[in-house]
Design a protein around this nucleic acid. Structure first.
Lengths: 204, 204
DNA sequence: GTCTATAATAGGATAGAC
DNA sequence: GTCTATCCTATTATAGAC
């Protein structure tokens, strides 16, 4: 029974809420679930989050926003070689999504009915994510419009790959989805999709 | 008060359940919601679907499976020019997803906790969808392995684009996601992503 | 800050009349 | 086949002791 909840403990609680919403969605995660995973009674949860489940979802999205800011946006603009920054970002996503085995809490909460504040946060996160990746793409030589489309398409592909692997267990789409970003730092701009180099037979 | 529910009326009910699950997810669509959108009392719903909400989700997925079978798989193997088949499939998805404005009921129900039968149905639908698209890609000249990856990556990109547009309102990612399939029928195999043709400045 | 206990309501599901 | 009425449980949320 800790007298006060220090920053570390608070972060641990939010991290467990994060995993619960990620794995079960907003409507699918009940207060009983959230109580169990955090080890706190319902009343204690309400002590920390007076507005209840909705606020818990918002705090989880705040953590997601902080992740994108620090592990993507800040890294993208760091004074390091492009390849280094790109590799760091890919490593961060590989960890966050466990190589494709974890769903995306942002994708799930964005669709669910978690209230207007959560909605706004989701949009902000996608915006920060998109801008950061677009900056990398532009740096690698794409026009501003192309870079923005590259970013949107790359993020979309990741989100969809996580749905597929959650349903089918196949992480291949997620692994391949990392490649276009990786290719930004290596040679001519590659498209979001895998380069289709070899044809078995030419089109008639 | 119709004496019996003919096939048309049944299809109409399933169609409305489809829209409800698509827009609110499995956990997010309450029996009260489903009762309202179908115009049937709860008891009437249980008359048609004795196993309740879970069965309703399964029936909705059956409809999704039928859609993929008829509008994608059957079309893909029809005796028509490749371009014709591809255009028909794209038109079908444009209608299903309203140009990117509708979420994907398959993507939503696949993640939710709608029971083992629904899970299995989701996997089957993704499998049929993947095989059909892979056949088209192989026909256009890709190797079997490349064709399967093309299909997985294309489907992932669509699923993710629908999440993005649901959150941000931007349908651009969905519209661009259609292009790789369209390109299958026009010239050399294009990748899943947009071809990054022009560089503003060559990589150093 | 955490707990037990409890309210208040919504959710899924059923009974039985018509 | 549909309805009204009801049941039971889970869910969100609060009260108040410690």
């Amino acid at each position: 029974m800790p007298a006060a909840l220090d920053a570390t403990e608070k972060a641990e609680i939010v991290s467990r809420l994060f995993a619960a919403f990620r794995d079960h969605g907003y409507e699918g995660a009940s207060l009983a679930d959230l109580s169990r995973v955090t080890g706190l009674g319902k009343s204690s949860l309400y002590h920390h989050f007076p507005r209840g489940k909705e606020q818990m979802a918002e705090v989880v999205l705040e953590q997601g926003k902080a992740f994108i800011q620090s592990a993507v946006a800040d890294v993208a603009h760091a004074p390091e070689p492009l390849k280094t920054r790109v590799d760091k970002i890919i490593a961060a996503f590989n960890a966050l999504y466990a190589g494709g085995k974890n769903p995306c809490v942002l994708g799930r909460l964005s669709l669910s009915d978690a209230g207007p504040e959560a909605r706004k946060l989701g949009q902000e996160i996608f915006a920060i994510w998109t801008e950061a990746v677009a900056d990398l793409a532009a740096e690698s030589g794409l026009s501003r419009v192309q870079a923005r489309q590259f970013a949107e398409d790359w993020i979309a592909r990741i989100q969809g790959a996580l749905i597929l692997s959650a349903s089918t267990g196949n992480c291949g789409p997620f692994e391949r989805a990392m490649k276009p970003l990786s290719d930004l730092a290596a040679g001519p701009a590659s498209p979001v999709g895998r380069a289709a180099s070899k044809r078995r037979h030419p089109p008639s």
